[in-house]
Design a binder for these strands. Structure first.
Lengths: 228, 228
DNA sequence: ACGCCAGATTACGGAATTGTTAAGAAGCAA
DNA sequence: TTGCTTCTTAACAATTCCGTAATCTGGCGT
């Protein structure tokens, strides 16, 4: 019986609030990480891979709305629940927040029981996919996000992290063309700036390692994943 | 004398009650420890490793609800039965108590026979899981969580505690990648901060002692358990 | 045919990450 | 205390990964 309830990332610029929430959730067995602003939040989220993010709206450096936009743009956070923390009377944000991908919001001041309940139900909504392995299959190709592996006809193919992430992105919408720009933002993030050829090189490595032609080039536009 | 029935930790701030229960249970062969509040309870529980905890709800320093939460958050108490002691008319607590992991509750004033019966059945419910050894086998490798041993092809391998815990965690979900972060939190705990190389060193020792390649490194991500 | 352009390919160096080792600190038992 | 094991750290080695630049290829319009 080693089920642990989940990993939660708390994002707030007020240390007291972080401390308070952190204490409450730790006592319920959650694993906790914290960030003090949007920039840090995205960095830590990549690293920590939380099941749920508690996101304050008002923050320096990068506010909650902007942060959630970027998170939602990255495929790796597709199944991460996000709950907004708002000051009372901030209804205008709440609506906007829900529109762009928040799953719930909680008004400050925070009541522990309410927090626990909301977190529990948000996690439950997302959990069902998460319990079992997250994998996709396309014919003979299998991409397993839980195991970080790709296999073709049962044979494992060893991809590096960036290669794997890139393939995951393309495979998330088979047939759809991803613009180079979009790929950059979603795999590398908004802050990171890399040259244009970088994508090509990674695409090439994937093609080379996998052996078959899964990625089609759409000249002047981008790339798409497609089993021939 | 038959086999000893079990170890029980009594947690109550009123010495009379502790004394009364203690006397009753000792006469039935149980080993008894006592604590006067939640803080002491957790400390003694770690030390004494009771099979069952009798926990008063109303206590100074840290109440029963909070205490049980913390206990249930620790994996080492997964198979410890917990029975609440409540004053009459405290039904609201009873429901909450059961929700967060109590196995039964007994209303004060306490009747000795009732106490013995309830304890007996609570222990019996937990005992059967405990009786059989919790072990996993992967090919020639066997991990025995009750005996704290690992063996390969029948030969015992002596792992240190941290090494064993680390291996257990990885082996709990074969194939799944555990992020370094997650490993740190789940093996070392949330508060403890250790350097990054610490994990590697332990991984190395496991690999060295076991001899075969069970643990695969996923660069930039973490480690996973995998029989080749 | 020529030049142009977007992408393909290749190789290389720096950066980031992990492996390895040894030594000291901390813990524990006798 | 002493002697032992375990844990952690720090330093260095080894490895892998990533981004870039330089060069190549093939399609397209002129």
């Amino acid at each position: 019986m080693e089920v642990f309830p989940g990993k939660i990332l708390i994002v707030d610029d007020e240390p007291d609030i972080v401390e308070f929430i952190s204490y409450n959730l730790k006592s319920k067995g959650y694993l906790i990480a914290a960030a003090k602003d949007g920039v840090e939040a995205i960095r830590k989220a990549k690293d920590f891979r939380p099941d749920l993010i508690l996101l304050d709206i008002m923050m320096p450096n990068k506010d909650g709305i902007e942060t959630i936009r970027e998170l939602r743009a990255m495929p790796e956070f597709d199944d991460t629940a996000i709950i907004f923390l708002t000051a009372l009377n901030d209804e205008k944000y709440e609506i906007e927040g829900l529109k762009i991908g928040a799953d719930d919001f909680i008004s400050k001041p925070i009541k522990p029981e309410l927090l626990a309940t909301r977190i529990g139900s948000a996690l439950r909504r997302f959990r069902k996919d998460e319990e079992q392995e997250q994998k996709q299959t396309f014919g003979d190709l299998e991409i397993n996000k839980t195991k970080f592996t790709v296999s073709y006809k049962g044979v494992d193919i060893l991809l590096a992290k960036k290669e794997f992430e890139l393939l995951c992105l393309l495979a998330s919408k088979p047939g759809r063309v991803f613009l180079r720009n979009e790929i950059l933002q979603r795999v590398w993030g908004t802050d990171v700036i890399v040259g244009d050829r970088t994508i090509d090189v990674h695409i090439r490595k994937i093609r080379q390692k996998v052996g078959i032609d899964l990625i089609t080039t759409v000249k002047g536009v981008g790339y798409k994943f497609e089993m021939s």
